[in-house]
Design a protein around this nucleic acid. Structure first.
Length: 956
DNA sequence: TCGGGTAACTAG
DNA sequence: CATCGCTAGTTACCCGA
């Protein structure tokens, strides 16, 4: 694929096009080749329900304990979790009934880690993001999350709602019609059914529920039985509807018109009614025909009320998903990532199982295979009726003047059209150019087919290059067949099964295979024999060498005064000269390349670990137009969430994050020629280290905001935002290698603060399960409950499971060591509503209080000995600030302790600790752990201030 | 001379 | 109306220890 042959950055090269046109008048018939492919559809098809006998969660009550545990395990499996939640039967229950196949605990993780053992199936070749996994962002709540939480309660709620819906759909295997799609609903006061039930109904049917009515009118509908005069005034600009609107809409499986359910007939509603004063029957008929989405009236209403931005830019709530769904480059990148993580492992398994004896030869035969203008070909085939790409000039594009051409066929290229060119330019060159739609689904389908076909050949190795392009090692195969025969077979097979043509190039190394492919396009093949390497290279342009781009070419021009160079011309330049001009590495590479030398290996069996992901980034350089810092911070929060989702999907955590900002270049126009494009920009990037591994969205978001404030760019000049997680390790590796322990487990490990769980110091046998505090009341042994899995469940489900386990006396009291996350969520949910907050008469008789309350202590020192705790904290601080900052494990304890203080309303003690650290910080400005501690203390300060603020606000 | 952070470049 | 200019990886370069 050739993506950049004609990229138009910021300026339209009309004059160049003119030149081209004039030149073409003189002579007809240039050709070139190339093509692009890309992109994955975000198919929103529903997740397949688990059909393995998972019952409706409403049925919990009727199961016996064995069945219940089995049920829970199936739930966790249905969510794609690697391990069962509960790993054996409760002690009290008769052993081993229906659950024996789930007793494998963490022992199977190692084998799962790198290669998948499953037989050939769709999953192995899954190229796209599985929608079922997308919204399972973990609920880890750590320090950074306070900040986020208080700022974005609503977003948090919606994330949890999404997970809840996902989970329920999976567990029940039911589809709920998205009746309330696009509706943002607020519930006011007492209703029947009550708010909690309405909430669930709304989110299950595609709606968004908000628990607070934002200042800027973010709700599309309000549900209420009655309204006080005060509220009437307050809600005068909303559609206030009776709860029956919800229930009856669900019953009839479509959105009933709101006008029939109004609680108040205010001006706003009146107006609407007037314009919609047609008979209701007709109204409803229209809706059912067009679906509520296309109902022009409803759309209008939403736009007015939700305060939508005029256009789909970065301020739009769905901007990110919309953008990625339509971005060819995003699809291209994620396909490649998926190929490397999924297909590569499958290829390794397949090749290994064949046990192909390695041919004893030092010279290898490498083959490069690539579709001819992939997107254009596939889109033309999909067109109804199919288009003959050999006679009609076509291209794939979204279709505006400044829309990029993702791919054009060779007929169009003959007229001068190039991939990456803007449609307007291409139309000037070729007025009869036919525009085709993107067909991301089909590209992906063909790609899977392609790779299956390749794997069918007896190859030594295969390295995916892109969705439509792969490198093969055919050394063994070429013992019995000539490269030409092999290439012919591949071309025929692919043509037969995909109806698309591919080109093949082969030679003694990767470099020559690539150059041969270039020569072979379109729809051809070329083999560079060992003894004709130099002759072949005589006909190759320097710019066609892999890794040689426009910058290097222009450097060649300015530094060596060679333009339009042939490879041959570079042979006379010494290695030293090349190195001094292009840098040591690039210089040597060029020196070798022009002699046909390349030692790049594609042996995936020899070094599989080389293909493991080292970083994960998200770039948005289109549609970025902000007015305020608040908008940017919200956007950063969204990016952090997306990052969490993507990291979760690949089971990785990172210890450093980078924010890169693009701002308009001072010389560039405010509005670049490309609609919502970035234009010519300046870039800044900055990296922060966490000191521990994480993917928690709150932490990422907090860190990003800090960096953003530090960079402090002119908001209105922002044109691009990228974030990148670096220093990645897989979850499993982190556990196996004990990277936690590697990270300065704090001096007091040996003395003052003996951790009371010796096994936690042995990473190799580190238990998945936490050690409980309360002995005795558990029907299930601690080792039987996998808290890691439990913690991955949506908090709503956690709550329900917890209640059910409690009811069965199987036990979770919420006081478990490594389950602070859950407690924090509970804690927050008590904070969310001012009304619910700290009922003054809370007593020990209050069951909720008993259930969630834990004696507050730190390192076994009870809160009553506060001075003792302060002393410990001081020592901890002094030791760890000389190291790399606080250890994650200690932070968990500390975190829990501080939460405890808040929970029992010990604001003074909380503040004393913040003050203690703040004072100590001043004296350690140069210490190694200063940054980490400083960040932590700042968080604490923020929390304190915000909690205090909340107190004042609600009059406590 | 190194190691770490940032910027630039390339590919598809 | 428009339009969806992504991302992983390598290398160069600069700085301070």
């Amino acid at each position: 694929m050739d993506l950049s042959s004609a990229t138009e950055w910021g300026s339209i090269n009309d004059s160049e096009i003119d030149l081209l046109l004039r030149e073409r008048e003189r002579r007809e018939g240039a050709e070139e080749a190339v093509q692009v492919a890309s992109s994955q559809p975000e198919s929103l098809e529903a997740t397949q329900a688990d059909e393995s006998g998972v019952q409706n969660s409403d049925d919990w009550g009727s199961m016996n304990d064995g069945e219940f545990i089995s049920f829970v395990n199936k739930l966790s499996q249905s969510r794609g979790l690697k391990q069962p939640l509960i790993t054996s039967q409760p002690v009290s229950d008769h052993a081993d009934q229906g659950g024996s196949d789930q007793n494998i605990m963490s022992s199977n993780r190692a084998s799962e880690s790198f290669r998948s053992n499953s037989p050939l199936n769709d999953q192995d070749l899954q190229l796209s993001v599985d929608p079922a996994e997308v919204d399972q962002g973990s609920q880890e709540i750590e320090f950074g999350d306070f900040d986020t939480y208080f700022r974005h309660k609503a977003l948090k709620q919606q994330e949890e709602d999404l997970q809840y819906v996902e989970f329920i759909k999976n567990a029940r295997g039911l589809e709920y019609p998205p009746v309330f799609e696009g509706c943002v609903i607020y519930i006011n006061g007492k209703t029947s059914p009550d708010a909690e039930q309405l909430h669930k109904l709304i989110i299950l049917h595609g709606g968004t529920y908000i628990q607070a009515l934002g200042a800027k009118g973010n709700a599309t509908h309000i549900i209420s039985e009655t309204l006080t005069p005060q509220k009437k005034l307050e809600f005068r600009n909303y559609k206030v509807l009776k709860p029956t609107w919800i229930t009856e809409s669900i019953e009839s499986k479509r959105l009933l018109h709101w006008a029939d359910y109004m609680v108040i007939h205010n001006d706003y509603g009146q107006q609407r009614i007037d314009t919609a004063a047609k008979p209701v029957v007709e109204e409803e008929a229209e809706i059912s025909q067009l679906s509520q989405i296309t109902d022009p009236e409803d759309n209008l209403d939403k736009q007015e009320e939700v305060e939508m931005p005029d256009h789909m830019n970065c301020k739009h709530p769905n901007f990110l998903s919309n953008f990625f769904a339509k971005s060819r480059l995003h699809h291209l990148s994620s396909w490649k990532a998926d190929l490397r993580s999924h297909f590569l492992h499958r290829a390794i398994d397949t090749l290994t199982s064949r046990k192909l004896e390695k041919v004893a030869t030092s010279t290898r035969v490498i083959l490069h295979v690539d579709f001819d203008c992939f997107f254009a070909t596939v889109s033309a085939l999909m067109h109804d009726p199919p288009i003959d790409i050999n006679s009609v000039p076509v291209c794939v594009t979204h279709g505006g003047n400044t829309s990029d051409i993702a791919s054009c066929n060779y007929v169009a290229r003959a007229k001068g059209c190039r991939n990456g060119m803007w449609l307007r330019s291409a139309r000037r060159l070729c007025p009869e150019l036919v525009c085709l739609e993107y067909q991301f689904d089909e590209y992906e389908r063909i790609s899977k087919l392609f790779y299956e076909i390749l794997l069918g050949f007896e190859i030594d190795s295969i390295l995916p290059v892109s969705v439509d392009e792969a490198l093969l090692d055919i050394t063994s195969l070429s013992v019995t067949k000539s490269p030409a025969e092999i290439m012919t077979e591949i071309k025929q097979e692919v043509q037969k099964l995909t109806k698309c043509s591919v080109s093949c190039g082969s030679g003694p190394n990767v470099l020559l295979a690539k150059l041969a492919l270039h020569r072979a396009k379109p729809n051809g093949m070329y083999y560079v024999h060992d003894d004709e390497v130099l002759t072949f290279l005589d006909t190759v342009r320097f710019a066609d060498l892999p890794g040689i781009g426009p910058q290097i070419c222009s450097k060649l021009e300015t530094e060596l005064n060679i333009t339009n160079a042939w490879v041959t011309e570079l042979r006379s330049v010494s290695k030293q000269k090349l190195s001094s001009v292009f840098g040591p590495k690039t210089g040597v590479t060029i020196f070798n390349y022009v002699r046909g030398i390349d030692d790049t290996t594609i042996d995936i069996l020899a070094n599989p670990e080389e293909y493991e992901r080292k970083s994960l980034s998200i770039d948005v350089n289109w549609g970025i137009r902000f007015d305020t810092d608040v908008e940017v911070e919200k956007f950063l929060g969204d990016l952090a969430k997306e990052m969490n989702t993507r990291l979760l999907k690949v089971n990785m955590v990172g210890s450093s994050i980078t924010l890169k900002l693009a701002t308009r270049h001072p010389d560039a126009p405010v509005d670049p020629p490309k609609y919502l494009g970035m234009g010519h920009c300046e870039f800044v990037s900055r990296t922060t280290r966490f000191g521990h591994f994480t993917r928690e969205a709150g932490i990422l978001a907090t860190e990003l905001k800090h960096i953003y404030r530090a960079i402090n760019p002119d908001v209105k000049e922002l044109r691009g935002v990228s974030i990148s997680m670096n220093k990645l390790v897989s979850d499993q590796k982190k556990t196996q290698k004990g990277l936690d322990a590697d990270q300065k487990q704090l001096p007091f490990k040996s003395g003052l603060f003996k951790l009371d769980k010796p096994e936690s110091l042995k990473p190799a046998t580190k238990p998945k399960s936490p050690v409980r505090r309360n002995e005795g009341t558990f029907g299930i042994r601690e080792s039987e409950i996998n808290w890691e899995v439990f913690n991955e469940l949506p908090s709503q489900i956690q709550k329900e499971l917890k209640e059910e386990l409690g009811r069965r006396n199987l036990g979770i009291t919420g006081s478990l060591y490594e389950s602070p996350k859950k407690r924090k969520v509970d804690f927050f949910s008590n904070f969310v509503s001012p009304k619910k907050k700290r009922p003054p008469e809370r007593t020990l008789l209050d069951s909720n209080y008993i259930e969630t309350r834990t004696p507050v202590s730190f390192q076994k020192t009870p809160i009553t000995d506060f001075m003792g705790i302060m002393a410990k904290l001081g020592t901890w601080f002094d030791h760890s600030i000389q190291a790399r900052g606080p250890h994650e494990k200690d932070l968990v304890l500390f975190n829990e302790f501080m939460f405890g203080l808040l929970e029992i309303d010990e604001m003074l003690k909380f503040h004393s600790i913040v003050r203690l650290f703040e004072e100590k910080l001043i004296m350690h400005k140069t210490a190694t752990g200063y940054h980490e501690w400083s960040r932590l203390v700042n968080e604490l300060r923020t929390i304190f201030n915000e909690v205090k603020y909340e107190d004042l606000e609600f009059g406590f």
